[in-house]
Design a protein around this nucleic acid. Structure first.
Lengths: 148, 148
DNA sequence: TTGTGTGTCATCATCACTATTACACACTCA
DNA sequence: TGAGTGTGTAATAGTGATGATGACACACAA
């Protein structure tokens, strides 16, 4: 089972905010770009707000803004902000306690699973939203800030 | 979203076969240890058979066996045999093609996501079923082969 | 004061996953 | 050779997470 779409969409949102560079973006505009509903975006923004990655400006002319420079937002920060579940699921019902294997398999596997998760997270920590934004600008042949 | 429970349960199965060391194990016995149904186990064994990790012996006294030494079975092999989905899900509906961000975000993110996946897989490649079996034996204070 | 946009709740449909029943087939053992 | 055992697979159902959607109170800007 994969991660939810939340991670990729959240990076999409933050990249949008990064390229617009200080101009508030409405959830509706972000929803249009991500091809989803505004409420979905607002739900993600709520998590990103809690994580201190974005902030919102209410009222007319308002919208979402980055709470800190895009260079300071690692993809790992985004991942942790929006993903709820453990990377590896274990048995739905715990294995047989009395069995030689069942009673110890989870403890035996735990170190490997932890190492694998940390390896993945270390990779996500190497890239920032600014890196993604720069790559999007390169691919789209425009420069930051972009006027929408 | 996490991986399915299939990965951990499949490792459980293979560890069981490894510690029983050549004695065929019935799907029902494996199901008891994993605390699930025999059909679930048979479904996993079917995938593991296809991947060349196990083989089955039909008829009375039959059951599942490792198709090669436990030292030669990496957790990565198991992972690939039983996990269907991509590690990272992208937008449910593709993002807006015409948008500066929407049209390029997936291409921009793809390298990072690939690196993260490969880092995870590299960790899973370092551990074998024999390693897990040895650890289970250590934790359970028994020696391999185990008589059930 | 009016209008805009956020934040959140509730509801719904969809999908993957696991559990379970059923049964045909292949093989072993007596 | 016949009986019994265990596998392999199909069909079905329940469950939980996810994403989509409508509604509405609240805060803020103009």
């Amino acid at each position: 089972m994969p991660t939810s779409t939340r991670f990729v969409v959240a990076v999409h949102i933050l990249t949008g905010l990064a390229v617009s560079d200080g101009k508030p973006m409405r959830s509706e505009d972000l929803a249009y770009s991500a091809n989803t509903g505004a409420v979905v975006i607002r739900g993600l923004l709520s998590r990103l707000n809690d994580a201190g990655l974005t902030r919102s400006q209410l009222g007319a002319g308002g919208g979402a803004l980055l709470a800190k420079p895009a260079e300071k937002i690692r993809l790992l920060d985004v991942y942790e902000a929006v993903e709820d579940t453990e990377l590896f699921s274990t048995h739905r019902t715990p294995p047989c306690e009395n069995c030689a294997v069942g009673g110890n398999i989870l403890e035996a596997m735990q170190p490997v699973l932890t190492r694998a998760r940390m390896a993945l997270e270390a990779e996500l920590a190497k890239t920032t939203v600014a890196d993604i934004a720069a790559d999007v600008a390169r691919l789209g042949k425009f420069s930051i800030p972009l006027v929408w």
